[in-house]
Nucleic acid binder design. Structure first.
Length: 828
DNA sequence: AGTTGGTTTGTTTTT
DNA sequence: CAAACCAACT
């Protein structure tokens, strides 16, 4: 397909003669007349407009998308539901800004959350524009843009522009030192916990002086605030930033230097933000500083987000930011994208009905025109335990594979990573290719971090954390006492530890043995620093790892992991080739902690629901829909009502990943913390509309579920439902989203979950207007009475202690008190 | 310094 | 249950 830019060169640079600063609204580059470099593109675009021809890149858009792309003046909020072409709108909008000659590439600020999203956006703009997007220097993550700003203006916040970026590991070690230095028991007050607190404060945009008194008091007998302040002071002396600082320093800088801020106001004519629902308070403040302009000056900011996909509240994301947009940017145009291009009507119907149970939504309803009678409904399956679940999913995947479905089009999305193992085990025995997305990351591995510490110290001799990490790795006989002495010496003189070491070996403060070792260390680093400018960086990297004895250390290690670690080190060197210098490489990995996977292999993807956001697959498997796991108990306990809603959004994200087929599973028994727990089906299952869902049982051959007379399906004799969601019941559910049967905690009181058990004798599921009404209710007489002696296949004998509808509380003789569904026990 | 045994602790994760 | 972490041995 052609685009509107064929053969048009794409310009990277702003013209040399930029409009003089001073006005808030610099004249745009001359759009017509062809006098500037951009004139060519603009002239073409305008010619197209004059001929009443829509530029090609706009032609495939629906009216809402097109409005979102073309509303270039003033603030715009795009509420884009799952699969409605969000990224397309964003990228086309950028293309449109460029094509209409309103801004140069370098005058557009485009912010994403992840490097992956930034990469994708760059690629897609590149395709639209038909050229490299090197010319969009301000497209990136909040953090990478923050670094860029800081490197330019480091001195304004008291840093040198060569500052290092610490990752969480470094931060924890630093905090630990501070805690110990303060004579606080670091067992009782773990450094990791405090590091998380700091991170939390920074997410909220709070410096040491601003944290709430309660927070300050709650750590280390009220020393929270001092510790935080000490931490910040230490970062300054180290010339280092943590991730939070990459946002906070620019904020502070802009606040205290209005002239600098004005410079960027002039520069950024258009601001775009992706995944706006995920912004935290600090990012919000950052954005507002850059986007808000004095009265009368257009605020060309465009935020794209979906409140229904906000799943990072636990990490400080504030959905409120999206709800507040119109207040912050008066006159904002709000555009909803609701036409879904991804999923079948059944998948969409199920997702829409589920999410309608949340309150406080901006209220979008996805729709699609496509109705294909051959489309499968969303399938709900039951299994006895997680092993059977994995086996059945594996079987289903193999079945699809036999029907020519590539494994790349299938994904298993789990709530918690421990669920992955069972699937992995199963797929290994089946010989089924799979790939785990997320999980332990390359740059976080021990050997990689050690190697990086060497490189960091060579490039930045003041990096004490790197120094401490590797002085004695490999072992050089430099123990705790030596390192502490170095530390003290350095602090006393206010110099970096490496410099201190260089000094100290000239004296006789050290005993001969450590002195010799330290001398070697110092001379090694001096040599490497000398090579930094002259030797190619990959070669230097190899030299460092060889000469330091680091590779030998692993060669001599006979543990099982050692060969893999050496392999990883080689991979590290290989990955450096793509960079110009060692400094450039270090800068990159400080921000981009992931490494790309090979897409060659045809494999099923296994990942958490969180990491699935933004992806799509033909077939999606959603295992583990059980109370306690999904919704997760902890989300419920700690987040209460809003916790539950976030879990529900997570379920929504899961469902909407599927294009054609979606299979949900729940099991009756799951091993949690080593012991078997009987589980109840997730409440989310009840929130799915029967019209779009089909319940099928595990194959009889698995035995478990139907064994011993338990659990004939209660759905066996289901009445037929209308198959669109235009039924009165669905409409009514839409109308009153508030479910009267839920109390403040999001717990359900009146309606209980569908019950498993009783075979033929069980009451039949009833439907009213397509809504599934649970057949067993609290007011319905139970077959059991308190005190009954019962038997459970997993927990053995016990006495009923309480009854709530079809949920029994039983005191088991051996297993203790449990809540189980009555279908799983029988009277003895 | 390196190993062993005992205790703890089990969501989601980016930068 | 099992991995990770820590403390106290050898």
């Amino acid at each position: 397909m052609s685009n509107g830019f064929d053969d048009i060169p794409f310009f990277d640079e702003e013209p040399a003669a930029r409009p003089a600063r001073g006005g808030h609204q610099p004249a745009p580059p001359a759009p017509a007349g062809g006098s500037t470099a951009l004139g060519g593109i603009a002239a073409r675009a305008m010619a197209a407009r004059d001929q009443h021809r829509v530029p090609d890149y706009l032609s495939g858009l629906n009216p809402e998308q097109r409005e979102a792309v073309e509303s270039l003046d003033g603030p715009v909020l795009v509420l884009a539901g799952a699969g409605t072409g969000k990224t397309r709108v964003l990228t086309t909008r950028i293309a449109h800004i460029l094509a209409s000659g309103r801004a140069f590439p370098s005058q557009i600020l485009a912010v994403t959350f992840t490097n992956k999203a930034a990469r994708e956006m760059k690629e897609r703009v590149g395709v639209l524009v038909g050229g490299a997007v090197e010319g969009m220097p301000w497209m990136g993550t909040f953090h990478s843009i923050g670094v860029k700003l800081l490197r330019r203006h480091a001195e304004l916040v008291g840093l040198k522009s060569s500052f290092t970026i610490l990752d969480t590991d470094d931060v924890v070690r630093l905090v630990k030192q501070l805690i110990q230095a303060d004579g606080i028991d670091d067992k009782r007050w773990p450094a990791k916990q405090f590091a998380q607190m700091i991170d939390g404060w920074k997410n909220k945009g709070l410096g040491p002086a601003e944290i709430p008194e309660g927070d300050a008091r709650s750590f280390a007998n009220g020393k929270g605030r001092e510790l935080y302040a000490a931490y910040q002071a230490r970062l300054m002396t180290l010339n280092a930033c943590d991730f939070g600082d990459l946002l906070l320093h620019p904020i502070r800088m802009f606040r205290t230097n209005p002239d600098v801020l004005r410079e960027y106001h002039d520069k950024f004519r258009y601001i775009l933000v992706d995944e706006y629902q995920d912004t935290n308070t600090a990012q919000y403040m950052w954005l507002r500083l850059l986007a808000q302009r004095p009265k009368g000056v257009p605020q060309n900011v465009c935020c794209v987000g979906d409140d229904d996909q906000s799943i990072y509240g636990w990490r400080g994301a504030e959905v409120d930011n999206i709800l507040r947009f119109e207040k912050d940017f008066p006159g904002a145009k709000v555009i909803k994208l609701e036409r879904n291009y991804r999923s079948t009507e059944h998948i969409l119907g199920a997702a829409a009905h589920l999410i309608a149970h949340n309150e406080g939504r901006l209220g979008k309803t996805l729709f699609t025109d496509r109705t294909d009678p051959n489309d499968d409904k969303v399938q709900v399956h039951a299994a006895w335990d997680s092993e059977e679940e994995a086996r059945a999913v594996g079987e289903e995947i193999e079945q699809l594979q036999r029907n020519q479905h590539p494994l790349n089009n299938m994904a298993i999305l789990v709530r918690a990573s421990f669920q992955m193992r069972e699937f992995e085990d199963r797929f290994v025995t089946l010989g089924l290719n799979y790939r785990v997305i997320g999980g332990p990351r390359f740059y976080e591995r021990l050997e990689i971090r050690d190697a990086l510490a060497y490189f960091r110290l060579v490039c930045q001799p003041a990096d004490d954390l790197a120094f401490e990490r590797i002085v004695n790795t490999p072992k050089r006989g430099l123990g705790d006492t030596t390192v502490r002495a170095l530390h003290d010496y350095a602090r006393k003189r206010d110099i970096p530890m490496l410099a201190a070491t260089a000094d100290i070996v000239e004296t006789d403060e050290m005993k001969p043995k450590p002195r010799k070792s330290l001398f070697d260390v110092v001379s090694m680093f001096q040599r490497w620093q000398g090579l930094l400018e002259t030797t190619p960086h990959t070669e230097l990297a190899e030299t460092i790892l060889e000469e330091s004895g680091y590779t030998d250390m692993w060669k001599n290690d006979k543990s099982a992991e050692a060969p893999g670690r050496l392999e990883n080190l080689k991979e590290l060197i290989r990955s450096m080739e793509a960079f110009e210098s060692m400094r450039g490489f270090l800068e990159h990995i400080a921000l981009v902690m992931d490494v790309e996977q090979n897409a060659e292999l045809d494999a099923v993807s296994i990942m958490t629901l969180h990491s699935a956001k933004g992806l799509e697959f033909e077939t999606v498997f959603l295992p583990g829909w059980e109370e306690g796991l999904f919704p997760h108990q902890r989300a419920l306990d700690e987040g209460g009502r809003s916790g539950l809603e976030e879990e529900r959004r997570l379920a929504y994200v899961g469902l909407t990943r599927a294009k054609r087929r979606c299979h949900i599973w729940f099991v009756s028994n799951r091993r949690i913390h080593g012991l078997w727990q009987s589980t109840l089906p997730s409440r989310f299952l009840d929130e799915l509309p029967v019209t779009h869902v089909e319940v099928s049982e595990a194959d009889q051959s698995y035995g478990g579920y139907n064994r011993g007379g338990y659990g004939q399906s209660r759905f066996d004799k289901q009445e037929p439902f209308a198959n669109t969601y235009s039924t009165p019941g669905w409409k009514r559910a839409q109308a009153n989203k508030t479910d009267a049967t839920r109390d403040n905690w999001g717990n359900r009181s009146g309606v209980s979950i569908e019950r498993i058990g009783y075979g033929e004798s069980g009451p039949k599921a009833r439907t009213i207007d397509g809504e599934l009404i649970a057949k067993s209710r609290i007011d319905e007489p139970s077959k059991f009475t308190v005190g009954d002696r019962v038997f459970h296949i997993k927990f053995g004998n016990g006495n009923i202690a309480g009854i709530e509808g079809n949920k029994l509380t039983i005191d088991f003789d051996r297993a203790g008190q449990k809540r189980v569904l009555d279908g799983f026990v029988e009277k003895v």
